[in-house]
């Protein structure tokens, strides 16, 4: 144990040397780890790459959508994230979500009423159908709780904080900032609705 402290003077050279080596070591030990941790954030926000590849997935046929109600369809997307991204001996993950489908204001267009199950629609008919159907995600825009159809009051209700949406997914009451997220979807000739893991209003995160 040295008896008392010895304070030698610090020359300019020593100070500059220590400063330079110190910063280099600091950079080497902080910049790569930062990128290491921020990798998904960079990919998601800057390069807009999503974990889910651009694929169309079927959710159901328009004949299954009843009038005056929003029904839930389960849809499964392939998900490539960390160890589920299809390496040599690993599988591709999957993410199952629910899409709520409902006719505009609950009224089935007469186009569909006349056609039976197997019939096919022309291009223009498909376009009118796409305008008259709402395909929305079931995550509440406030805090992401699963919303559900409340047949008593004919509205879509979020159980967490009392958010209320109309049958078209428009925001009516409660804390949610805006209406439900609307899927990017298309309708095939034989009336099957196909959905992509992309939303009209942007990225809702979580879902």
């Amino acid at each position: 144990m040295p008896e008392e402290l010895q304070k030698d003077p610090l020359t300019r050279g020593q100070f500059l040397y220590m400063g330079a080596v110190g910063t280099m070591m600091g950079l080497a030990l902080t910049v790569p780890p930062a990128f290491f941790i921020m990798d998904p954030a960079l990919k998601a926000t800057i390069f807009n790459r999503s974990d889910i590849p651009h694929v169309w997935r079927e959710i159901g046929s328009i004949f299954e959508v009843p009038s005056g109600e929003a029904t839930a369809f389960r849809v499964t997307f392939p998900q490539k994230q960390t160890y589920d991204s299809g390496g040599p001996n690993s599988r591709v993950g999957s993410l199952t979500e629910t899409a709520l489908a409902s006719w505009h204001d609950g009224k089935i267009p007469d186009l569909v009423k006349k056609r039976s199950e197997g019939a096919t629609f022309s291009k223009s008919e498909v376009r009118t159908l796409e305008k008259n159907i709402n395909v929305m995600s079931n995550a509440c825009t406030h805090m992401g709780c699963p919303v559900r159809w409340d047949s008593v009051h004919h509205q879509i209700v979020c159980p967490c904080h009392g958010g209320i949406y109309t049958i078209n997914g428009m925001h009516v009451g409660g804390p949610p900032p805006h209406g439900l997220w609307r899927y990017v979807f298309r309708i095939r000739e034989d009336g099957i609705i196909e959905v992509r893991h992309k939303w009209v209003q942007g990225t809702p995160w979580i879902v």
């Binding site: 998904p40 998601a44 926000t45 999503s50 974990d51 889910i52 960390t82 993410l95 990225t203 995160w205």
Partner: peptide, 16 residues
């Protein structure tokens, strides 16, 4: 956006 994608490890919920 950054905070969520950092916590999520991507833009959806998954193994990350």
């Amino acid at each position: 956006a950054w905070a969520v994608s950092l916590l999520l490890g991507g833009d959806t919920v998954g193994p990350a």
